[in-house]
C-alpha cells in the first residue's frame, strides 16, 4: 500500500494513497466539522462546513478552499483546518442554515442531540447576524411510525442517499430548486402514501436534526443512530458482523 505524506496544521501526517483530507485529519485527531457527510454514504460536499485551506495541491502555492470530504490527500499538501477565514465561513454557513428554516430548539425532538445545534455551539454562534426568514413549511405526519417536519430540514440529503444507496428503495429525492428545494417522497405525495417505503427507518436514524423523527418521540427524545448504518455497510462490504 503506497503512502503519501502531507501537513495538517503544521503536523506531518502519513496516510494511504486515496485517503480523503477528512479521514486524514480524523486519523490525526484533528476534528473538522461536517454536516452532510456521513461515513457509509457517498460524499456530496454540499454543506461546505468541511472546507479547508490547501496549499501545494497541483503545485499551486496560493491557498485554495477545498471540501475535505471529497478531496484526496496528495503528497506535499499543506492543509489548514481552522484559520480565521474558515471559522468565519463556518459560522456564516450555520447562520444561513438557521435563518432559512424554522429551528426552535426548545420544542424540538432532537434538542440536546442535534448535530446542527452542536455545530452552532462549536462555531460560537450565540446569535445570527443575518435576519431570520420564517418560511412557511409543512409537516408530513402521514406515515404510520415516522414524521417529517420540513421546518427542521437542512437539505443535507442524508435521507435521500441512505434510502437510495443502502436500502435501495429511493423513496426520497430533492424536489424543486434553489430556495424552494425540499425533500420529496414519491411524486411529491404524502410519505404514508408511497408504496416504495419499506418502513425501515434508516432515514430517521441518519437525520442530523429533528426533521425526521419517530412519532412516539417528544422533545429531547430523538437520538440519531448513524452507527447502525455504518455497521450495516461494514457487514455488507466485509462480511463481518459485530453482534
Amino acid at each position: 500500500m503506497s503512502v503519501c505524506t502531507l501537513q495538517i496544521n503544521e503536523r506531518d501526517v502519513a496516510v494511504p494513497t486515496g485517503t480523503t483530507l477528512l479521514e486524514a485529519a480524523r486519523q490525526a485527531s484533528i476534528p473538522i466539522p461536517t454536516l452532510c457527510f456521513l461515513e457509509g454514504l457517498s460524499a456530496v460536499a454540499a454543506c461546505r462546513l468541511c472546507l479547508v485551506e490547501v496549499r501545494g495541491a497541483d503545485g499551486r502555492e496560493e491557498p485554495r478552499l477545498l471540501a475535505a470530504c471529497v478531496t484526496t490527500a496528495a503528497e506535499g499538501m499543506r492543509v489548514q483546518t481552522h484559520t480565521p477565514r474558515l471559522q468565519d465561513i463556518r459560522r456564516t454557513v450555520i447562520e444561513l442554515l438557521f435563518t432559512e428554516g424554522n429551528h426552535v430548539c426548545a420544542i424540538c425532538v432532537a434538542n440536546g442531540h442535534c448535530e446542527l445545534q452542536n455545530l452552532a455551539v462549536e462555531v460560537g454562534m450565540d446569535h445570527s447576524r443575518l435576519p431570520y426568514r420564517f418560511p412557511e413549511r409543512h409537516v408530513d405526519l402521514s406515515h404510520a411510525q415516522f414524521g417529517l417536519d420540513h421546518n427542521r430540514c437542512i437539505l443535507c440529503t442524508r435521507c435521500v442517499r441512505v434510502c437510495d444507496e443502502v436500502e435501495g428503495a429511493h423513496v426520497w429525492d430533492v424536489g424543486w430548486r434553489g430556495e424552494h428545494c425540499q425533500i420529496i417522497s414519491g411524486l411529491g405525495e404524502p410519505w404514508g402514501a408511497v408504496e416504495a417505503c419499506t418502513h425501515c427507518g434508516k432515514c430517521v436514524d441518519v437525520c442530523p436534526t429533528g426533521a425526521l423523527f419517530h412519532k412516539a418521540d417528544t422533545s429531547e427524545e430523538k437520538h440519531s443512530h448513524p452507527e447502525r448504518l455504518q455497521a450495516l455497510v461494514h457487514a455488507r462490504s466485509h462480511q463481518e458482523w459485530s453482534p
Binding site: D173, W176, I184, G186, L187, G188, A196
Partner: peptide, 25 residues
C-alpha cells in the same frame, strides 16, 4: 400530470421521486 409522470417512471424504470425531482427542477 401525475398519471403521465407515473407512466414515464415505469417506462424508464425509475423511482417516482427521481422523476418528480427532475421534472420540478
Amino acid at each position: 400530470s401525475k398519471p403521465l409522470l407515473r407512466h414515464i417512471a415505469r417506462q424508464l424504470h425509475l423511482p417516482f421521486s427521481r422523476v418528480q425531482g427532475t421534472a420540478s427542477f
